[in-house]
Simulated scan of single mutants.
Amino acid sequence: MKTELPTSRAELKERWADFKTTNPKTRIRDAARELGTSEAELVATGSGENATLLSGDFRDLIREVGLLGQVMALTRNDHVVHERKGVYENVSFNNHVGLVLGPDIDLRLFLGDWKFGFAVHENERHSLQFFNSFGEAAHKIYLTEKSNREAYDALVARYRAEDQDVNLFVKEKPESAAEQIEEPALDKAAFQQEWLALKDTHDFFTLLRKYKLSRSQALRNAPQGYAWQIQPESLKAVFEGTSERQVPIMVFVSNQNCIQIHTGPINKIFVMGPWLNIMDPDFNLHLRQDAIDQAWVVRKPTEDGVVTGIELIDKDGVMFNQFFGKRKPGLPELPGWVRLIEDTVIKK
């Protein structure tokens, strides 16, 4: 006999159903915030109906996602949604850090806090959805019209939790603290010298930790000619220039549990309300322009030459989106990307 839902969960299920009726276009992440709960808890209200709790080692599950064929990978944070179609290929793990290195699906996975997993079907859409211990979405995988549905059903059956009525114990996330305005005590000359001596863009994180700087504090103290603050609204001109000139780019979106990367051209760009959108057949990006507190062009030395990127930072000092010209280790950055940045945001 099926166990009755606990009263609190039953009440949440009813509130969630009412909310969807009156707010059909609100995204579930935003709905969770308005309802004072987490996205994982909202998904769990569908247990036994449209949601199946998953168990087991999620590393093993991710290794099997390639069996599904083409899927759509989705990673987001509070301000931007990154959706990319492709096949999960070349999957590997070092402890709880994973890589997916296909030509289309390109991910860095940090599974140390992938706490909950569900298979979800709603409005004819089937997906695998993973959440951290705060109930926030870490990563989602949606079937497409080209996916192998039989392989998906078999995978869900293999990882289906025996008990589907388990309550989720979701931790309360502490409030994020706004960045301190005061500049820290800094040996600026030493910091700039180390910036100019960088060999890899990833070494920039080590530099920030060493000098105990936030992202924007570091950019404000950059060597001359290595960081420019630009107008957030100029990002649309960069997108349009990228499309018109067909300059392939790299688009990074991250949260604490996943980094998702698109590499290639972009074409269809438009604005709808606060959202700046890229809507191509295999790649979609939805970016809240009103979340951009600071936008920067940043140059970092590497063994392959200087790499130029655009970094977006929110009001709490968190970098939430990055853009580069298409490049691979061992190759210099695209001259066309550098010219585009100069023409659209630096010279203006």
Rank of each mutant, 00 (worst) to 15 (best):
M1L: 02
R9H: 05
W16L: 11
K20A: 09
T22R: 10
I28N: 01
A31S: 07
A31L: 07
E34H: 11
V43R: 09
V43S: 09
A44L: 11
T45V: 05
N50F: 09
G56R: 02
D60G: 09
L67S: 07
T75S: 15
D78P: 00
H79C: 09
V80F: 02
H82Y: 10
R84S: 00
K85H: 04
G86P: 03
V87A: 05
N90S: 04
N94Y: 09
L99Q: 15
L101E: 14
D104G: 00
R108P: 08
F110K: 11
F110C: 04
A119V: 10
E122S: 09
E122I: 14
E122W: 04
R125T: 14
L128Y: 04
Q129Y: 10
F131P: 02
G135T: 04
G135E: 09
E136Y: 03
K140E: 03
K140F: 05
E162Q: 14
Q164K: 03
L168C: 03
A178N: 14
Q180I: 05
I181F: 11
E183N: 13
P184V: 00
K199E: 15
F205C: 02
K210L: 07
A218S: 01
Y226T: 05
Q229F: 10
S234Y: 01
L235H: 08
M250A: 13
S254L: 02
N257V: 00
T263C: 06
I269R: 13
F270H: 09
F270W: 12
M279R: 15
D280P: 02
D282M: 02
L287R: 14
L287T: 14
R288G: 12
D290Q: 12
Q294M: 11
V298D: 03
D304G: 14
D314P: 08
F320G: 14
N321C: 10
F323V: 07
F324L: 08
K328V: 15
G330Y: 01
R339E: 11
V345R: 10
